[in-house]
Design a protein around this nucleic acid. Structure first.
Lengths: 330, 330
DNA sequence: TTGAAAGCGCTACCAC
DNA sequence: GTGGTAGCGCTTTCAA
């Protein structure tokens, strides 16, 4: 920057102001400086700027597993909200390991990130010790048990009730739920919504939990289910990936979908459309959730945190081909 | 850090050395300092460290679209290779927009990242002007037309030849290729491998290109194909996502897979196992590619770039259920 | 083995 | 509107 200043025959402070587009520099001077910057290919040093201005213009997104198909589109939404304000997005995969999450979250403390968007459902210990942490953290997609942190989510309970209602309307009553990890409030909420809806319909709830919510988990849960007596006529899965695993196993065992068994997924990932049969599922507005989360974080970062905002977006049942009407003859 | 120094009753420089685990500090002193750091929850300031040491310990991964299912697992591999050496990984989605890529790549110039792993097949202009850029860049998954940059990839041409050979062996000869964007060397190579294999078998190659390689692209390409006279008996897709789109469209039109038409995918994403029928495809070692790329970048960062290394990993044909034997009666 | 001190490149405050 | 300048928090060289 000193070089630029010399070349432009102004003081270094003027260059700094010009580059920050301060109104206290003539348009003329700015133009001259901009030209020189252009010519020399100069870029400001991120470290120095961070050191001085105590901000990195980086947002850290923490998620359990970057390979879970449901997350990337949320990230896309966050990027959209955040980029035009000069922030860039950094994604960290915690592999559901609290320790890894702590390490990654340290980026906030060291100043490498100005804010964190949590999609893990876990508030890192180190963050809780950060002054005004509620100003720097937003939970998206996965709730965090902390009233001070703004949250963006859908109503998982209600979504499951929607799913159960759909199956009920088709004449099913022996419906089981293939759940995700029940230490996660998200999957707890889904299981609870399922139970509540079943009970109020006078049906008997049955939940088969898993440690994960990917394809493999769906396969294994389905294996366990099929080993049981008294096969259900319909299944609600905690994620589309699980549903796909479960359906593939069932199909492999000669079970016809939806004739013999109906399936509902959760997430509406792009692949659910091209399944055979196409998967009926609960759509969640991932992109919008990301955008909302990004917006809130940005606002809190610049204006300070007010009362923690709690955004609940709408889910939607997408009826495709994986659910059949139950004939009374059964 | 000054506080820590005061509390430990040593000089700030000693604290710095202790934290860097320099051998020039007594184990005793180190221990005392470590304890105080622990108690106070102190973390070094990332900006200041960057400013002084001119390194950020961050690796930037640039990819076209974070939502393309094939990429995340490569990122996982990179993380594996890089994390234990104290680097963290930053993912940037360019949306295949060269301009966005330039903006993201600036992170290298500003010092926010020490190195870049390119999965876009495009070398950013700004990087080319960076001194010793070949030391800071590795191309993974997508080749870059620059001999100075190390590359990690599979042999896309050979992989397609494998795919064609498989179909040939099943009796097919009217095989068309649903290609991805042909401005990408990767998809060019795949198309070329296909053409070469077809020609040397005395068969007539036919390529239908697309602007993308996602599900939608597969659907649209298949639509175009089916509008043509003279339907092929087998189709090789440039990606699994395309194959899934194409199969779903074909199935919707009453074409039976694999009885009426065979399909081969490319990538072996997790979903290909649970398709109905399960997708025969070319497996590419994404995790390994990521790891290799991360390792090379790290080495170049620390030891300087030697001759650009060119790693070619092995692909593998995975035979599942989407290809049928062509009966001679046809 | 430890201390002192010089900056890294920038921003922001204060003067003019 | 512009210039001068202190200092952000750290690393590293030099001296002791």
């Amino acid at each position: 920057m000193t070089d630029i200043a010399r070349m432009a025959e102004v003081d270094i402070s003027t260059v700094s102001r010009a580059l920050a587009n301060s109104p206290r520099v003539t348009e003329e001077t700015k133009e001259r400086i901009r030209r020189i910057v252009e010519e020399t290919g100069y870029v400001v040093n991120h470290g120095a700027r961070m050191l001085r201005s105590r901000s990195s213009n980086q947002i850290l997104v923490l998620l359990g597993n970057i390979a879970a198909t449901t997350f990337p589109e949320v990230v896309l939404g966050i990027e959209e909200a955040v980029q035009e304000h000069g922030y860039s997005v950094l994604v960290g995969s915690t592999h559901n390991d609290p320790e890894r999450q702590e390490i990654l979250a340290n980026q906030l403390l060291t100043g490498a990130a100005d804010g964190i968007i949590l999609m893990t459902g876990l508030l890192p210990e180190v963050v809780r010790n950060f002054p005004n942490y509620e100003q720097h953290v937003v939970a998206v997609t996965r709730m965090v048990p902390d009233k001070r942190i703004p949250q963006v989510n859908i109503d998982n309970r209600a979504a499951m009730e929607t799913a159960v209602a759909h199956l009920l309307a088709l004449g099913h009553s022996r419906i089981v739920h293939l759940s995700g990890p029940l230490d996660s409030p998200t999957f707890q909420a889904r299981a609870e919504g399922y139970r509540r809806a079943m009970r109020s319909a006078g049906a008997h709830p049955a939940v088969i939990p898993s440690q994960a919510f990917n394809i493999q988990a769906g396969i294994e849960a389905m294996e366990r289910l099929l080993a049981l007596p008294d096969r259900p006529t319909a299944i609600i899965c905690a994620s589309d990936e699980m549903a796909m695993g479960a359906i593939s196993l069932a199909t492999g065992k000669g079970i016809r979908v939806p004739d013999d068994m109906s399936f509902v997924g959760f997430d509406d990932i792009p692949f659910s459309v091209v399944m055979n049969p196409p998967l009926s599922t609960i759509h969640i507005p991932r992109r919008d959730m990301g955008r909302a989360g990004g917006r809130i974080l940005l606002r809190n970062l610049t204006e300070g945190a007010g009362k923690a905002e709690n955004v609940v977006l709408r889910h939607e049942l997408i009826v495709r081909g994986s659910c059949g009407r139950l004939s009374r003859s059964r």
